[in-house]
Each structure stands twice: as structure tokens, then as C-alpha cells.
Computed example of a mutant assay.
Amino acid sequence: MRRALILPLFFGLLGLAVFLSLGIWQVQRLQWKEGILADIEARIAGAPVAIPANPDPEADRYLPVRATGQILPGAIRVLVSTRQMGAGYRLIDVFETEGRRLLIDRGFLRLDLDQPAPPAGPVTVTGNLHWPDEVTSSTPAPDRAANIWFARDIPALAAELGTEPVLVIAREISPPEANMMPLPVDTAGIPNDHLQYAGTWFLMALAWAVMTGYYIAGLRARQKADR
């Protein structure tokens, strides 16, 4: 009688061990990811430096920078949606500084507001370098006739505006612009779903344990009835 319980008990314990190990692994991944996000946040908030002559998209991602220059007319509008303000545009312009032409993300403009001209004089921009990875296979092509883009495609934007493929996302522009709200770099867009995955595996472990218990209890009941 007891021998008949060995096999289901074995597979029950094996499945439970697998689900628990996957849950524990996701908890470890969660701790690892939180450490990475903390490092990125510390880098974003660091003391700003001059924009490197040849910034590297990996080594200089999130680098805090500060520069003084001129924002030129002719902004490209990138359609976005924010949780607090709804739909609107990011304005991407040419930023001329120290003989260079770079891209600058001036911030968020609500859909119901007219597109403002850039500041007439020199401005000091404090922000972060970034190469956002927003283009997917489902991203529509830019509507150039309406001046609406659907992602910050740095190589394409640089080619369109005749700049280096370097984007400064403004954290602060001095003097500030009316109707414009900076959308600075943060870690909110970096996925961190490990807690959810861990919870799923632990729930599956619990369900597996309950089903195994019911199965073994039913098997024992049938064995007693057959005596």
C-alpha cells in the first residue's frame, strides 16, 4: 500500500522543489536588478560634467552633463503619453554648443498647447545623455507631413536634423520655458518584473503541493475502501 504512494509523492516533491527553486531564483534576480537600478539612479543624479567629445552609447548612457548653447528652431514632435498629463509631444531640437550640433529633448508639451519657439538667446542645459531604445517592429514610420514621430530613433533624428547622434535629455533649462515641462531621464521605463515572476512561481508551488496532497489523500482513501 505504501509503495503505491511513493511515485506520486516523489513527483509531488520534485515539482514542489522545482517551483520553489524558480521562485527563489527570481527573488535573487530581483535583488540583482534593484542593485542595478540603484546604480543607474545614482549615476543619473550625479554632478554634471561637460559633454564628452566622442560619447559612447554604452559607457556614457545616463551621464549627467551641462552645457551652454543655442536651441535652434525646427523642433520634431515625438508623440508620447504620460501618466500624470496624458498625451502630448516631446520636442526634439538642434542644440548648438561649442561648435557642435547635438539633439536636445526639451521636454513635454500638451496636445492642446501651441508649439513654442525655442528660447531666443543662449540657454544653459542640465540633463543626461541617453540613447533610448524605443523603436520596435510595430513602431509606425514618422508622419513628416504632420511633423509627428512615434519614437526617439536617435540615428534617424540625427540624420533628419543634421546633428551628431547624441541626445541630451533636459532636466533643467535656464532660463526656463513657458508651457514646457522637462521629462528627465529616470529608471521608470526599465522593466523589473522579477517580484511578479517570483510570486507566480511560489503560487504554482502552493498549487502543486495542494494538488499533490489531494491526489495522495484520494489514493489512500481508495486503498482503504478496497481492503
Rank of each mutant, 00 (worst) to 15 (best):
N147E: 08
I51R: 00
L72P: 06
P48M: 08
E98S: 13
T163E: 03
Y89I: 05
E172N: 13
T136F: 15
F10G: 15
A38H: 10
E58I: 11
I51E: 01
E164W: 09
V185Q: 11
D93R: 06
K224W: 10
F11V: 14
A53H: 07
Q26I: 10
L7S: 10
E96F: 08
L109P: 10
G199C: 12
L72C: 08
A38P: 06
V18Q: 01
W208I: 07
D39Y: 06
A141I: 10
F19R: 03
E58Q: 14
I104P: 00
T200I: 13
I71R: 09
R77K: 14
A188T: 11
G213L: 10
W149A: 02
R83G: 05
I71S: 10
A59S: 11
K33W: 01
G88N: 05
Q223E: 13
F95L: 07
M180A: 03
A53F: 03
S81G: 12
D133N: 13
G86W: 04
A120R: 15
G23A: 11
M181C: 06
D105C: 04
T97K: 05
A42P: 07
T97M: 05
T212G: 08
R29A: 07
R90M: 08
Q115C: 09
A170I: 14
G213D: 07
K33C: 09
A209Q: 00
V135L: 15
R3D: 12
L161Y: 07
F10W: 13
Y89A: 07
V210H: 02
G127K: 07
I104K: 01
T126D: 01
I71Y: 11
P122I: 06
T82V: 08
R100T: 04
R2A: 11
E34Q: 14
R43I: 10
P165R: 04
P155H: 05
A42E: 11
A45M: 08
L206S: 14
G86F: 12
R220F: 06
Q70C: 03
L161P: 02
A217D: 09
A141P: 04
L13P: 02
P116I: 02
I71L: 11
L203C: 13
H130W: 12
L102E: 02
D114W: 00
G218E: 06
G213I: 05
D105P: 01
A207E: 04
V135E: 13
